[in-house]
């Protein structure tokens, strides 16, 4: 048995958020809400396959148009087969980059979502190594 430090995927959430049994848009909660039915688990919400999911921090603004900013934490699932249009974590020339994958016809490219950055075109013979598919983005404001 191996217990890892601060494993985001399998350790119980530090903060369990209570969910009440009945929907109460306004007014008084029902007496049934004296006990809790469930808690919300952010791991469960963000992670499909814990063994294959890794957290990665963004550095730079090349994906600002997709709502991904510098300092955000990305949820990356290595188990998903990357498809055209998905945001991926790729290794280009030994460095990690986050871009949108374009794979149509003969063209394979990694497209930034910021006009200040050029697309990365992959030419014949150039190997594209996709490390994983970005399935979520975590922002903290405080």
């Amino acid at each position: 048995m191996i217990t890892a430090l601060f494993d985001p995927a399998t350790s119980p959430p530090r903060l369990a958020i209570p969910v009440y049994g009945s929907a109460v848009p306004a007014g008084f909660p029902s007496p049934a809400d004296d006990y809790l039915e469930l808690t919300l688990d952010l791991n469960e919400y963000l992670i499909d396959d814990a063994a294959a999911t890794f957290m990665v921090r963004v550095s730079g603004d090349s994906m600002a148009g997709a709502g991904i900013g510098s300092g955000d934490v990305l949820v990356v699932d290595r188990g998903i087969a990357p498809q055209h249009g998905q945001i991926v974590l790729a290794a280009v020339d030994g460095e990690f980059t986050v871009k949108r994958l374009h794979k149509r016809g003969d063209r394979v490219a990694l497209i930034p979502e910021n006009p200040a950055f050029p697309p990365i075109e992959l030419h014949n013979g150039q190997e594209l190594c996709i490390w994983g598919v970005v399935t979520g983005c975590i922002k903290k404001f405080v």
Partner: peptide, 9 residues
């Protein structure tokens, strides 16, 4: 470790 995550541009 949150402070040591992989960085991606």
């Amino acid at each position: 470790c949150w402070d040591e995550l992989l960085l991606a541009k």
